[in-house]
Simulated assay, not measured.
Amino acid sequence: MNELDANGTCDFNNCRVSVTLDGRNAEAGERVSILFSNGEKLDFVAAGGDILLSNFDTAGMGATNLFVHNVRQAEWVEIGFGGKRHRFSLAGSAAALDAVRPWMTGGKP
């Protein structure tokens, strides 16, 4: 990601989410499910490649913003595709996003 805006969200030129499970990316056409501990869900068909979500189009912008928002709100996220699932702890993730934001915009913390 290049930078987050002042609210810590994505704009049209900066957010990409990459996830590998068991060393592989979601293949084109595979169903992807993302569930956050707070009940928010994303369910979509993967485009394939190393970028799972990108906000370079209108549909992707909503998904990446929802993803980043929930990284700040949820305790964990469970991601599944290709018959694999993994639950990732989000402990400290909001603090990490806040800590790197000044570096992404060229400032100092």
Rank of each mutant, 00 (worst) to 15 (best):
A74W: 02
A96E: 10
E75Q: 11
C15L: 02
T9Q: 14
V19L: 03
G83R: 04
V77Q: 02
P109N: 08
A91E: 14
G83H: 06
A28Q: 15
W103Q: 13
L4W: 12
S89D: 14
E27G: 15
H86I: 00
D11T: 08
F12I: 11
V19M: 07
R87S: 05
G49H: 08
R87I: 01
S18T: 13
R24Q: 13
A63W: 00
M61F: 00
E3S: 12
D98H: 04
K41G: 07
F44E: 02
S54F: 07
T20Q: 08
W103A: 14
R24K: 15
V100N: 06
F44L: 02
G107D: 15
A59C: 03
T9C: 07
R87G: 06
I79L: 02
A59G: 08
K84R: 08
R85G: 04
W76V: 01
A6L: 09
F88W: 08
D50L: 00
A95V: 04
E78S: 14
A47K: 07
K84L: 04
D5Y: 11
S93D: 05
F56Q: 08
K84G: 02
N25Y: 15
S37M: 02
C10N: 03
R72G: 12
R24M: 11
D57F: 05
G106P: 07
G107Y: 12
G92H: 11
H86G: 03
P102R: 07
A63S: 10
A99C: 11
L90Y: 13
K41N: 11
A47R: 06
S37I: 01
D98S: 04
R31W: 06
N70G: 03
D22M: 10
V17C: 12
L42T: 04
L42S: 03
N38I: 03
G92N: 06
E78V: 03
D5N: 15
E40M: 11
H86R: 13
F88S: 04
D11W: 03
N13Y: 09
N70H: 03
P102C: 04
A95L: 05
A28I: 13
L21F: 10
T58K: 05
L4I: 09
E30V: 08
M61D: 03
